[in-house]
Design a protein around this nucleic acid. Structure first.
Lengths: 257, 257
DNA sequence: GTGTATACTGTGGTCTGACCATCAATGATG
DNA sequence: CATCATTGATGGTCAGACCACAGTATACAC
């Protein structure tokens, strides 16, 4: 039979839930930070089982669109946009991402983002950046705290770029690099230089010098990359025992640890 | 009573599943394309209920790490890396992404990606690109088909860049733009010009001229953007009457656990 | 009154076990 | 030999009970 275009009252329940919520968000009924009805109630109203509803919500939570808090409720995400939390690290394991690739991507993105921030940044952004820079200088002896301000600094620049999509992309890569970073910073004895570079970037942005801001950012990231690689163990490699026909073989070794 | 402090391995079941599978992937026991055990069996081996296992799998599926096929089985994703399918369009609705922002991001990424492809592209990529260009010229009268080759062309360039992370980012944005694109192309009577631009880009890449390739790509995308906006309906606006202003500082410090 | 402990309520988290839906392979039928 | 019905494996959904967590109200000390 030719076209029997499956209309859609039928899609998988989870998909149904996703679409329903998408609609609510698109028409403004749901906004960031809002809470959705309790599962039991919501499920009843959608005429599906609570289990299915949960599947759909889980899906959205994985994408970072919703945030579930045990004992409290389920809310629409409101923080900075980001693509599924662990997604990048996972894909890293899957497709063999290497750290130089992450840095390459980060440099390309942040360089442009810094330039845009220099063009479009507002007073509030400048003020926020200034504060973070000050905090960085103040916490040069506390690596863990320093890192926090470092991260915020970059995040503010992303926001200042005026392009939430770019900000989300940067956020995704940054968060994936965060763990490794934490260790590196721990043994870094020279945060002063880093802090000063941030200050220069800040100045270039405030002075609205796109090109300069971009160059400084790139330079900064290259140094960070160098510092990081100093102790990066053997870049994962040779994990698979070569190519053998894929079939059910993997099933054998799987068991509870 | 002192505490019945249940020590540790106690994370949420779904998280448990996610971590377990992550481990299997990281140590090579699971590779792209592999099939995991049937739910019932797997659940038993993990000592958790099937429902919980499903929650975890759903989570992974949402992130695009796993692919579930009703009646067949669950597999580790193997196609080109990409961040959760609908994620971008969702975040668009959530954070009010606008199409110019998508294009801005795309231009920044693809310009650099094209440059990298010009530097690192291999023979096979050149050949593949040549073929797609040829197909484009051959299908100038069939918009829908033309689009397919257009998409492939860009995807090949992403792969040729040698950086799967950048490829994944491009893929994510591109797929989000795909739908709109489809309509635009439908009424475009001038695919010849587009095809010729693609050919030029291809030539620049094969000739290993990064800068030129980047510039051509940018130019191409700007034209595409212009063509698109010709009929873009009311850019979504009036997102929310009560746009509660949030200071930059506030947002920046929202998370930092 | 103040403060801490307890109970209660609302909400998400998990479990069980049955049944439905889909797909692929197999065998029966013509 | 081709087509179609059957069957087995596997994911999808359901219902309802019970567990766990967080916040708040209440009780009871002091």
């Amino acid at each position: 039979m030719p076209r029997t275009k499956q209309e859609e009252p039928n899609t998988h329940r989870a998909t149904q839930v996703v679409n329903h919520i998408r609609a609510l968000i698109e028409n403004g009924a749901l906004q960031p930070g809002d809470k959705i009805p309790p599962e039991r109630e919501f499920a009843r109203s959608l005429k599906i089982s609570r289990a299915s509803l949960r599947t759909g919500i889980g899906y959205l939570a994985a994408m970072g669109v919703m945030k579930v808090r045990h004992g409290v409720g389920t809310f629409v995400a409101d923080g900075p946009a980001e693509f599924g939390q662990t997604s990048l690290s996972f894909m890293g394991a899957l497709h063999g991402f290497q750290s130089w690739q992450m840095f390459e991507a980060r440099i390309i993105l942040e360089r442009q983002v810094a330039a845009l921030a220099a063009e479009r940044g507002k007073e509030e952004h400048h003020a926020a950046l200034a504060e973070e820079v000050a905090e960085m200088f103040a916490s040069m002896n506390t690596p863990s705290e320093y890192l926090i301000h470092d991260v915020r600094f970059h995040r503010i620049i992303s926001q200042a770029s005026g392009n939430p999509i770019l900000a989300a992309l940067v956020e995704t890569i940054t968060s994936a690099l965060y763990d490794k970073r934490r260790k590196t910073v721990e043994r870094s004895t020279d945060l002063r230089e880093s802090a000063e570079m941030h200050r220069e970037i800040y100045r270039a942005i405030r002075a609205r010098k796109p090109v300069e801001a971009g160059q400084l950012m790139e330079e900064h990231l290259r140094l960070a990359q160098a510092a990081q690689s100093v102790e990066s163990p053997t870049e994962r490699k040779a994990l698979s025992a070569s190519s053998r026909p894929r079939s059910v073989r993997a099933e054998a070794r799987i068991q509870t640890s």
